Computed example of a mutant assay.
Amino acid sequence: MSYSILDLPPAAFSTHAPALVDLYIEAMGYEASLRTRAIHSWRSAVMEAGFVAACALRGEELLGVTYGFIGRPEHWWYRQISQGIRRQHPGSHPTEAPALWLRNYFELAEIHVHPRAQGKGIGRALLQHLLNQVHTPNILLSTPEVPQERSAAFHLYRSVGFEDVLRNFYFLGDPRPFAVLRAPSQVTQ
């Protein structure tokens, strides 16, 4: 399958957010009712420091999307992860891993490939493209837990050096368990 990976500057990302969110909803099997809220959230992300986004296209067909930004303590995700670290790693000092990883990290917020285009290397190409632009020492992401890590997402993340930070972690408001993973940026380069 022939496709191109293109950067999505903030204005283009915001303009195309409805189509990007539609791909996200289909790839994740989410209810369409979250579309409006997700579009707003994705458009807001362009204001974050270090925002980077890319998409995969075959002609005019959108095959995949990824984006992220530099994490900071004011973010809901940061607060959730910080609490999880304190719960799952009691007694660890703020200057030790994994708490130390939260000091300067890139949050890989989303990476999705349309279901009919999965398994063709698009996710890997999107991930590598995005990570080649990251200038923080750590990259963090969350992904739904699956038995024995039997998913394309886990295979991809492990293959580029992501390791566990939190396992079977529950975000407020989501009934599914998640894994929070981290890679030092030089490993993924």
Rank of each mutant, 00 (worst) to 15 (best):
T143V: 11
I39G: 09
L6P: 06
D164L: 02
E74D: 15
R150V: 02
I81G: 01
W101P: 00
T36P: 06
E61T: 15
N104L: 01
G123I: 07
Q83D: 04
P94Y: 13
Q189K: 14
A183K: 03
P90I: 07
H129P: 09
D7C: 14
W42L: 12
I81S: 00
L156R: 05
N104E: 13
V21S: 01
F106E: 01
V134A: 03
Q186L: 09
Q133V: 09
E149S: 06
A152C: 04
Q128C: 14
A45K: 11
G91C: 08
M47P: 02
I111M: 05
P184K: 14
A54S: 14
Q83N: 12
L181F: 00
H89F: 12
R43I: 14
P147Y: 08
S151I: 01
L8D: 04
V146G: 01
E145I: 04
Q186T: 13
P10R: 08
I85G: 02
H75R: 13
L127S: 04
L63F: 05
I5H: 06
Q88M: 10
E110K: 11
L131D: 05
W76Q: 09
H155N: 08
P177F: 04
G173A: 05
F13Q: 05
H135M: 04
L181T: 02
H40S: 12
L181M: 09
P144I: 02
M1D: 04
P73V: 11
A45G: 08
A49T: 15
I111D: 00
R176Q: 08
A49S: 14
S4E: 09
P147W: 10
P184H: 15
R43P: 05
R79D: 02
V165C: 00
A38H: 11
H40C: 04
Q148W: 11
V52S: 11
S4T: 11
A153I: 00
T136D: 06
G121I: 03
P9R: 10
Q88D: 00
T143L: 01
S4Q: 13
S151L: 02
R43K: 12
S44H: 14
T143S: 00
M28W: 12
I39Y: 06
W77S: 02
A54Q: 08
R103A: 04
M47V: 11
G71V: 13
A99F: 12
P90G: 13
L108N: 07
L62P: 12
D22E: 15
R176T: 13
Q128K: 11
M28H: 10
G64Y: 04
V180Y: 00
R37I: 06
I85N: 00
F171K: 04
E74G: 15
